[in-house]
């Protein structure tokens, strides 16, 4: 999942890197095919080289040492709002068929509802990155017809509803899961199955998705991780804390 996510980062891009798994995916991309990608971390860190040791948070001393720029959240978020960030990378707890992401609450306030931590910078990254990628575990309870709370905007109700809301660029480009990759398709921007990871079946993915998941015409198996990619992941997360 992390390696498939890393592949979505292009060389020379400015990437806004979210908490947790996106930090690992960015570092793997830097060590493999995207050595000149620039990383923005919302606490106010810009880096060229990935940190030299495992990060538990983006504010760890290892992410500050030899940074290209230590600054404030608003400087980086401001550049994001100005359209200067090519790719945003976030995690999520719940996602729907139009790529809207929920990290705020499951259910409505009342008995049985679950409070989640909230947006952090995810709402900002989702609204304003030119391309948005999200990484999450593929489970039926997480991949739902409609999220309980739109923390981070995808294509809202599909069609041009994102534009109607006033967001003139961006939107989900891919959702990378532990089972495969989903991408929006057609004028409605509904998420479709683009690839399934080696050893995973299409039926398994459909079973783990809470809406009637369609396949892209050219859907195929995800390329297996290369030796180089696996080595990079091992270097970034040697003890497997995140992966």
């Amino acid at each position: 999942m992390i390696i498939a996510a890393a592949r979505e980062i292009h060389n020379n891009e400015v990437v806004f890197v979210g908490m947790r798994l996106p930090m690992v995916a960015y570092a793997v991309a830097r060590l493999t095919h995207a050595p000149d990608a620039v990383g923005f971390f919302e606490c106010g860190v810009m880096r060229h080289q990935p940190a030299q040791s495992l990060l538990y948070t983006m504010g760890d001393p290892a992410n500050q040492k030899s940074a290209a720029w230590l600054t404030g959240t608003l400087q980086l978020m401001g550049m994001l709002q100005a359209g200067k960030v090519h790719a945003g990378f976030i995690g999520g707890a719940q996602i729907d068929r139009f790529g809207n992401i929920n990290t705020s609450r499951i259910g409505k306030p009342g008995p049985g509802f679950t409070k989640l931590p909230g947006s952090g910078g995810a709402a900002d990254i989702a609204a304003m990155s030119q391309r948005l990628f999200s990484i999450m575990k593929h489970q039926r309870r997480r991949f739902v017809e409609r999220v309980d709370y739109v923390t981070s905007t995808g294509y809202l109700d599909g069609g041009d509803s994102r534009q109607q809301a006033g967001l003139h660029h961006g939107g989900t480009t891919a959702v990378i899961t532990d089972l495969g990759i989903l991408r929006p398709f057609g004028p409605n921007h509904e998420l479709h199955l683009a690839s399934w990871h080696p050893g995973i079946t299409v039926a398994q993915i459909r079973q783990a998705t809470g809406w009637d998941l369609q396949r892209l015409p050219d859907a195929e198996e995800t390329n297996a991780p290369s030796k180089e990619e696996l080595q990079a992941l091992k270097k970034v997360d040697p003890q497997g804390f995140w992966s």
Partner: peptide
């Protein structure tokens, strides 16, 4: 969001009546 909280503080810091923002459009926040 991190950005909107920062902009709320920014508005107070600089004596502005409000700060304009785009990132919350469409969000339930």
């Amino acid at each position: 969001s991190n950005f909107s909280l920062g902009m709320a503080l920014l508005a107070a810091a600089y004596g502005m009546p409000f700060a304009p923002n785009k990132s919350l459009l469409g969000s339930d926040i």
